[in-house]
Design a protein around this nucleic acid. Structure first.
Lengths: 206, 206
DNA sequence: GTCTATATGGCGATAGAC
DNA sequence: GTCTATCGCCATATAGAC
């Protein structure tokens, strides 16, 4: 019988991963030290190494866990069986909610991929994410006069930019437009979710 | 008479600042070592310290130089004396061109401010950037039936998100939508500049 | 499993020769 | 002004006591 301080096997692992996710997503890989993570998890640095041998391994775990939070939101909208416009409304709702709960994800992912593009390959393709299918659906809706004719890539970039930008630019927007008041900004984001559904649907309708 | 290897005083300073800007904007402050910058500038690390005493000082210089590249684009649109819709068209044109020449700026600025929010105060307010004046102009145009009635903050966030997003997400977009072909992506960005002017103006018109 | 102590390496910064 | 050599620090990672 092994010694076991924690009743649930993996309890400490979970605590560490949560701590690491918090620190990594806020400060990035290069801006994070193992000491930071150990402090956040309230353990010593050697204990951290005991559970996750290296900083690289721990980061890889955190990064994959983060992309696994994002990708399902995309997958859901692709496989779901509702009319295209409904899909967009659902996607805006889902994606916004995910970002409200995880506001640091977008900037973290974008920065880490920019610094180390090889992270890209391992994240999105692995989940079987294929935008082509969804693009075909969009183009078909354009042919049928349901959507305005546009380059689907512009349409998707519009959609993502409109949703993500407030989150990646939060400190600037909050500072310049909301007198640095966190609550005002949070209220604005909630309101913007509703606003965006109307705005985006109108922008793609004939 | 002082010894002077370089004919133009400040020639080496310029070379170093350019090298530092390149490395800092691509890898961030924490991801950059003085050795990186020295290598890029083709000098030794002590020589780097000779010109710019510390990493912090050099970074501050680079960061301010970067924001000084961005802020004038905003200022111009505020003080210019043309109708509102013309202002937006000019702004999209100016901002896009600046970003095509400096594609790493947005993610760099957003990441560094997120990690160290105190950088915000020193950058935008210092330049006398006041969005309030422009917002009043927008609201007045809404009253006069020139623009659709909306929260001007949503309008500005739409505008910036639509312009900036392709640049902060370049590796992902290029990877997923352009088979990692740099030229195809570059061509798309040029095309998007034109597209966005039409799209955005239509989205704000009554 | 968790700690103290420590090995090893890299980084920022400076001293000092030239 | 530019270099070699070096100091001191902090970070990652491990050894070994408990």
């Amino acid at each position: 019988m092994m010694k076991r301080k924690h009743e649930l096997s993996g309890e400490m692992e979970t605590k560490i991963i949560n701590a690491a996710t918090k620190v990594f997503t806020r400060n990035g890989f290069a801006g994070t030290s193992m000491q930071h993570i150990a402090d956040e998890a309230e353990i010593s640095r050697p204990s951290l190494n005991y559970y996750f041998r290296t900083k690289d391994k721990l980061f890889e775990l955190v990064f994959n866990r983060v992309t696994e939070t994002v990708v399902p939101t995309f997958m859901k909208v692709i496989v779901s069986d509702v009319p295209v416009k409904e899909k967009f409304i659902q996607f805006i709702d889902d994606f916004f909610n995910m970002l409200i709960n995880n506001p640091f994800i977008p900037l973290f992912v974008l920065h880490e991929i920019a610094v180390n593009p090889s992270l890209m390959i391992n994240s999105f393709r692995r989940e079987g994410f294929k935008p082509e299918t969804f693009f075909l659906e969009i183009e078909s809706a354009m042919e049928n006069g349901i959507l305005k004719k546009t380059d689907p890539r512009n349409l998707m970039i519009n959609l993502l930019g409109l949703i993500i930008f407030p989150f990646v630019a939060q400190p600037i927007i909050q500072g310049l437009l909301f007198d640095n008041d966190k609550d005002s900004f949070a209220a604005f984001v909630i309101q913007r979710k509703k606003y965006l559904k109307e705005f985006f649907i109108e922008s793609i309708s004939v």
